[in-house]
Write a protein that binds this DNA or RNA. Structure first.
Lengths: 247, 247
DNA sequence: TAGACTAATTGTCCATTGTACAAAATCTAA
DNA sequence: TTAGATTTTGTACAATGGACAATTAGTCTA
């Protein structure tokens, strides 16, 4: 670490502005915490781990850990998630950074929250490294969480609801070929609202990037539904024009 | 704290966190960077400082500095802004955290971006501490900025446009008693779009928390406009119902 | 095989909103 | 008194949103 002086000011305005050695600032750490929302057939859950180390040993927590000194934040989020839950290839987005001074008992650690939405049955999380357990928890009954993870979870849930209407994060939770009813259920579950079937259908049909196939649903005990497919290329066009479901 | 091993921790996935002394993680720092958008009569600017210290000495930059070890992030943003530009009492919001490994030449420093919108003429920034100059820069011609500040600025401008339609951050840039035309100009400037006068007016009038006064504009060389006032209490009611200008 | 059942799909009505554009009103300045 | 400038109101029509009903096309069961 270079022995340079800080650009940071002293707390006391009378202090020489160069009076704090820069080393004093380089004593912090940061972590990433991953909020993985798992959707499956009308239920929304979140992936938690049981911690196997202090602090908060045995508490349920978001999968999260310290970022390596030479690791980019985004990369770290993937690495940490894999380290603890063995799951990979989940695209996460940054949500918010939490920096209360006392949020971590071992020192100054701020944490950057990341989130993603996935189809629960696509993943097979199992604990590794210091995680004792992994478990999908229903959002309706979340246990007491370690650190300030409840706040991170809340903020991420808010973001999820907004994102669902602005970006096609729902592609991850619907089959490649899906019915409009399946699609509607995703929105109803996550936004915690009911929609009129007919009106929802009309709205979807205006979204030209959801293309009607000529195939039908199979093995249902009622009139089968036509299947639809998401067309990424067409979506990109519409997105440029500022598309938004806006429910 | 445990003793430190030499060298940086390996990214080798076979290493678990126990093989790296925790000290190795507590060698980072974080900073806050403030994006202060200043609006005045149809112009949008951003407050920059000229740096008086290395790194990037003499470069223009966002007002920003390292966070003290025992300082909350939000508090730090206010403190840093005041330290460098002498301005106070500006409500800022967190935007995004930037954490590229090599973004800071002195070591691992991630930065949390904050932003605010203010009436430019309400503030009187002047440089203090290690800031050589402060200056409002038009968004149309931004000089080369220090660090990754251009990215921070871009992200904040995006956020500003969204926020303008969702939250009454515009109260800071309109007089207590304002005309609809003044109000419209704020939106046109920041969103970089023109609106039809009549239609804009109708939209505003649906927002019940903008109350028509019985006073008139003075000293204009044309038909004077009625003045309006923002009613915070009424706003809070509508906000609960999910109000959004949605231009 | 007919009718019951279930859910998909289509259609209708009506109030609200968005948009383009025009007309009228009200002040100042000369 | 009139021109100029800008506010304010109005109008017409298309698009949208939401409540709700009718029709359709399958399976299931008697």
């Amino acid at each position: 670490m270079p022995k340079q002086k800080s650009g940071a000011p002293a707390l006391n305005p009378k202090n020489d502005i160069y009076s704090i050695p820069i080393d004093a600032f380089f004593k912090s750490a940061f972590s990433v915490d991953c909020v993985i929302f798992g959707y499956h057939e009308g239920e929304l859950k979140v992936l938690l781990i049981q911690r196997g180390v202090e602090p908060y040993e045995n508490f349920w927590a978001l999968p999260g850990d310290l970022v390596y000194p030479h690791e980019d934040l985004d990369v770290s989020a993937y690495r940490v998630l894999k380290d603890l839950t063995s799951i990979e290839d989940v695209k996460m987005q940054q949500v918010h950074t939490f920096g209360q001074v006392d949020r971590h008992p071992l020192g100054r650690v701020i944490t950057i929250g990341y989130m993603a939405l996935v189809e629960l049955s696509d993943l097979n999380p199992h604990p590794s490294n210091w995680a004792k357990q992994t478990k999908w928890h229903s959002l309706k009954k979340i246990p007491k969480l370690a650190f300030d993870h409840k706040s991170i979870l809340d903020a991420s849930l808010n973001r999820l609801k907004i994102l669902l209407q602005e970006e096609p994060i729902w592609v991850k939770v619907i089959p490649e070929k899906f019915t409009i009813t399946q699609f509607q259920l995703v929105f109803e579950t996550i936004l915690e609202r009911k929609f009129d079937k007919g009106n929802f259908r009309k709205k979807i049909q205006k979204a030209k990037f959801l293309k009607k196939l000529s195939e039908m649903e199979q093995n249902v005990r009622h009139r089968p539904s036509l299947l639809y497919k998401f067309d990424k290329k067409l979506y990109d066009k519409y997105k440029e024009m500022g598309f938004d479901f806006d429910f």
